[in-house]
């Protein structure tokens, strides 16, 4: 898809929103609203998007946005869905939007509860891999080796990034998928597919953050593409927690991870030994993913 081919009239994100230049989270929501259409209600938890949405009565989006406390996104989404149903508004798509903090960390309990109940809405996590709204502090979505303001040099983020997709798959939800803004067609297709499915749907979007990651605002798409071609952030979908399928396979051999890490300030002082360790982790996760995909029977 080329930029000029995008139909802007269906977009619900107004120009003049409060996102930083090159923000992956703003782009994610722009594509999201293009895919889902105008009959949506958005539940928004504390995150960069609390700022991007603007200061009421101003708003950055042409749909209702209901802000909610940080840990509550999964539960408030359940309430809005059930409340709209009680009012006969079954055809409105409810979307819960949370950052990685509101999904992987403080929001995990509510997310798990809603997923287990198979609540009928789409939970979208835009993952910029740290608490960016508060100024780049470590979250459990921060990759191994990254430096943050709560893990400054010579410290670094220890432990792996939490595998949220496996957690969601373990809930046997009808649909879960990863996406990035570098592949807008793939992202929009997944949202459209999710919209047609009833029950709990989870979309995990890698959303580069230029000020947090220490990158140029023009690099967001390039970096998102590298995250996919290195295998750091594979694009796939999971049906009912069991049927795993790649949707965008990197062409040829995977690009070495170092190319993705280079040029990001958060990995700038990362020692080779740790880069190797992270490469090993990515290789291992890739093999595990391929195994799952290989052993998955396509569902009817």
């Amino acid at each position: 898809m080329r930029i000029e081919e995008m139909k802007r009239e269906s977009e619900m994100l107004y120009a003049g929103h409060n996102a930083c230049p090159g923000c992956g989270a703003a782009l994610s929501v722009r594509f999201l609203t293009r895919a889902l259409g105008s009959n949506i209600a958005l539940v928004l938890t504390a995150s960069c998007w609390s700022i991007i949405a603007g200061m009421p009565p101003l708003t950055a989006l042409k749909c209702p946005i209901l802000h909610c406390p940080f840990p509550s996104a999964g539960s408030v989404g359940s309430g809005v869905r059930r409340g709209l149903d009680a009012k006969g508004k079954h055809d409105t798509t409810v979307v819960v939007l949370a950052g990685d903090g509101g999904t992987f960390d403080i929001g995990l309990q509510a997310l798990s509860g809603a997923a287990q109940r198979n609540e009928d809405y789409i939970f979208v996590c835009y993952d910029n891999e740290a608490y960016m709204n508060t100024g780049m502090q470590t979250s459990s979505a921060t990759p191994f080796g990254a430096r943050t303001n709560t893990a400054p040099y010579p410290l670094f983020k220890e432990g792996q990034k939490k595998d949220i997709m496996q957690i969601m798959a373990a809930h046997s939800i009808p649909y879960a998928a990863t996406a990035t803004v570098a592949f807008p067609e793939d992202l929009e297709n997944k949202l459209k597919k999710a919209q047609e499915i009833k029950g709990f749907r989870f979309i995990h979007i890698l959303s580069p953050c230029p000020p947090g990651w220490g990158t140029e605002s023009g690099d967001t798409i390039h970096l998102s593409r590298l995250a996919v071609s290195t295998g750091f952030f594979p694009l796939y979908e999971i049906i009912n927690g069991v049927s795993w399928k790649m949707t965008c396979m990197p062409e040829g051999k995977r690009v070495p991870l170092k190319e993705y890490l280079m040029g990001q300030r958060r990995f700038k002082q990362m020692e080779d030994i740790r880069i190797d360790a992270l490469q090993e982790e990515v290789d291992h996760d890739w093999e595990m993913l391929m195994e799952k995909i290989g052993s998955s029977q396509p569902l009817k």
Binding site: M55, L58, P64, L84
Partner: peptide
């Protein structure tokens, strides 16, 4: 209702 599909509103934002 505060949440009215089709009616943009930034409810309880900053």
């Amino acid at each position: 209702a505060q949440v009215k599909p089709g009616s943009p509103a930034n409810l309880h934002g900053l």
